[in-house]
Amino acid sequence: MKKSLIALAALSAAAGAANAQTSVTLYGVIDTGIEYVNRVATAPKTLSPTLAGEAPVGKRFGLSGNGGLSASRWGLRGVEDLGGGLKAYFTLESQFTPDTGLFAGNTGIFNRQAYVGLGNAYGKITFGKQYSSLAEGMLNFSPTRAAPAYEPGVWWLGINYRPANTIKYKGEFGAVSATAHYSFGAGVGLTSLSPSGVLYNGGTGETPGAARDNTAWGASLAYVNKQFGVGIGYDQWNPASTVGNPGKVRKAGIAGSYSVGPTKLIAGYRWGDQTYANGRSAMRDDYWFAGVSYRVNAALDLQLAYFYSNIKQIALSSGSASVNPANPQQVSFVADYALSKRTDVYLTTAWAHNGSLANDGPFTGYLFNYAHAPGQKNMIGAMVGVRHIF
């Protein structure tokens, strides 16, 4: 009997040690608010060279599915210590719209991230749907912390900033991080974009006999400490609207930040060049941004940002004439008040000139529902909301 008790105690201790080396975490964010937009159009059924929406046009007031500060999501992440410094990792993450409870974009359950991998002191190699290298290198320098309501984040990083079918390396060495990725087929589903000849119409790639279709690759390098940060990155995607005829979407960016006491300054630049399979330009643009954040006290944080897009030329199909539209620009302001470490309330507002809020349009898939009307010069949006992190 005594030996049986000793054996049972030994087994319990071994199980406890194994559990201590393995962890699975449930996490998430729910963010929604009441939004007012002064003048917004419906997304067009057919895209026109004016890049404008269609009637009806008017004010919009109601609950927002975008989230004022963060995209609403839930996920599972886990890590297992395999011994000898080797660990196994996984992440499953789903984005949803809190006003309806539906998955974002009517996509699959783990529409945001779904990957597994191995890592040690020299870095991690992961496989699945995950952030691109450009996103990894740039997101630390987002002027309003990638707030989905009004920051032109998809315009900045590309609609493929979370490619599927991806193998990625990421290494973190103190303040330095390095990332590189390759996607066998980015698999971008544009459920809210009209199929009218725009460069990318989704597709998972991995097509027999057309190995280059929808492939993507990139790399980035960043240095971030408590006072200073700088990042640089490149991303290329080869979307194919028809099998065997890939186009080319290329983006390169550089950004930096500097903190002094409660104040943080951020600025950056992104070069972009997108071409159809026949070599004609779909869009050539330069994107600039700058911002400042100020922590008033332990609870209140203020952010002010400016975004400017120099659109040199756009053609919405491989056979249409290029146009040179007026350059969009936007000013955003965020006031975020923390009620606790996990719950905050906020006001976010933005003014856009010569375009839509968040630069929403055909090259962002109208994902944010801010299409502007023909001849419209200005658009104003404001949202008050609550965010809870769990």
Rank of each mutant, 00 (worst) to 15 (best):
E54F: 00
A222S: 15
T349Q: 09
G58P: 05
V260K: 01
A219F: 08
I254E: 04
A321S: 13
Y294N: 12
K248E: 15
A282R: 00
N378M: 05
A104V: 03
T275H: 12
P98Y: 04
N238Y: 10
F363P: 07
R284E: 14
N38G: 07
N38T: 07
V37T: 15
M283R: 11
A10Q: 11
I380R: 00
A88L: 06
N297K: 01
A178Y: 11
S70P: 02
G231W: 12
A14D: 11
P246I: 00
G319W: 02
G375F: 03
V230S: 07
M138A: 08
A149W: 11
S318C: 02
L47D: 13
P374C: 00
E172G: 00
S142I: 09
G174K: 08
K2V: 15
A10Y: 02
G319L: 00
A43N: 14
K312C: 10
L300S: 08
I314T: 14
A114N: 07
N297Q: 02
S48C: 03
L8E: 14
P262C: 07
T204Q: 07
L199N: 14
I159A: 12
R162T: 15
G268C: 07
R77K: 14
G355M: 04
A55W: 04
L47E: 13
F173K: 05
G62C: 09
Y131A: 11
N140S: 13
K87H: 06
P152E: 07
Y308P: 02
G233E: 04
W237A: 14
Q113W: 05
F103T: 12
P374V: 00
N238F: 12
G67K: 09
N327Y: 12
A71C: 03
A277L: 07
G185V: 04
D285E: 13
N378A: 11
G355A: 06
L304P: 02
L82E: 06
S132L: 07
I266D: 09
A326C: 00
A299G: 05
I30H: 01
S281L: 08
Y370R: 08
L76G: 11
G189E: 14
N369E: 10
F307V: 03
V292S: 08
L339P: 07
D99V: 04
A219S: 14
Y200E: 13
L76S: 11
N278S: 06
D31L: 10
Y131I: 04
A14M: 09
G244F: 02
K248T: 13
G233M: 02
L316H: 01
G105H: 03
G381T: 15
V29A: 12
T126H: 02
L47W: 12
A315D: 06
A299M: 13
A338Q: 15
V116S: 09
L82K: 05
A338S: 15
N38H: 08
A14L: 10
I109D: 05
S48M: 02
Y122Q: 13
G65V: 11
F127A: 09
F61M: 03
A149D: 15
A211E: 10
T191M: 06
V384F: 13
V79E: 15
P56L: 04
G171I: 00
G256Y: 01
G67H: 12
V40A: 10
V243Y: 00
A298P: 12
I167Q: 01
Q313I: 09
K124Y: 03
V24D: 03
Y306D: 08
N19T: 05
N201M: 13
L86I: 08
T191H: 09
S309P: 08
R280Q: 13
P208F: 13
A17W: 01
A373R: 03
Y276C: 01
I109E: 09
T215N: 10
